[in-house]
Amino acid sequence: MTDRGHLTYPAHLQLATLKLAAGRTPEELGLNRWTIIEHQEVLGHGEECFREAGRRVLTWQAHRRARVRAERFGPLVRLHIGPLMSSCLVLLEEQTATRTALVYGTLPSHVELGEEAFLVDLAPDGTVTGRVVAFSRHSWWLAKLGGPVARAVQRRANRAYVAGMRP
Rank of each mutant, 00 (worst) to 15 (best):
A70Q: 14
G126W: 01
G44I: 09
A16W: 08
V57P: 10
R33V: 13
G23C: 10
S139C: 07
H39N: 10
I36W: 08
A21L: 04
S86T: 15
E38H: 11
L18I: 00
R56C: 04
G147R: 12
H12F: 13
W60K: 12
W141Y: 11
S139V: 03
V128M: 12
L91P: 01
L7V: 04
H110S: 02
V162I: 05
F50C: 05
R33H: 14
L20S: 05
V128C: 03
I37E: 15
V149N: 00
L142I: 15
T96Y: 03
L91A: 08
L84A: 14
E112K: 10
P10L: 10
P148V: 03
A150K: 04
E94H: 03
L18G: 09
F135Q: 03
V128Q: 06
F118G: 00
T98H: 06
R159K: 07
R64A: 14
S109W: 14
V42Q: 12
P10T: 13
V90K: 00
M1C: 13
R131I: 02
V162E: 01
V77W: 09
F135H: 03
Q154F: 02
M1A: 11
T127M: 04
S109D: 12
H6G: 09
I36T: 11
L84K: 13
T25D: 00
L142G: 05
G164A: 07
C49K: 06
S86E: 15
T129I: 06
V120T: 01
T59A: 07
G164W: 04
T25S: 11
T129W: 05
R33I: 11
G23K: 00
I37S: 13
G44H: 09
E27N: 07
A21I: 05
W140C: 05
R99F: 03
W140L: 07
A152S: 10
A101G: 03
S87T: 14
L145E: 09
M165Q: 00
L84M: 15
T129K: 04
E41N: 00
H110I: 11
T35S: 10
R56E: 02
I36Y: 06
Y9V: 03
A134K: 07
E112D: 07
L122D: 05
W34I: 04
E47V: 11
H63R: 14
E27C: 13
V132M: 04
C49V: 06
V90E: 15
L145C: 08
L31W: 01
A22P: 04
V133I: 08
R131P: 05
A53W: 01
V111W: 02
H138R: 13
L76G: 05
V103Y: 02
V103E: 01
Y161G: 09
Q14H: 08
G46N: 08
T96H: 05
H12G: 10
E38R: 11
T35L: 05
P75F: 03
A160E: 12
P108V: 09
G74E: 12
R99N: 03
T35R: 12
H39K: 08
S87H: 15
E48N: 13
F118H: 15
M85Q: 15
W60E: 10
Q14A: 15
G23W: 02
L29S: 03
V120E: 05
L79I: 13
T17P: 08
L122G: 01
A134I: 01
A97M: 14
R151C: 11
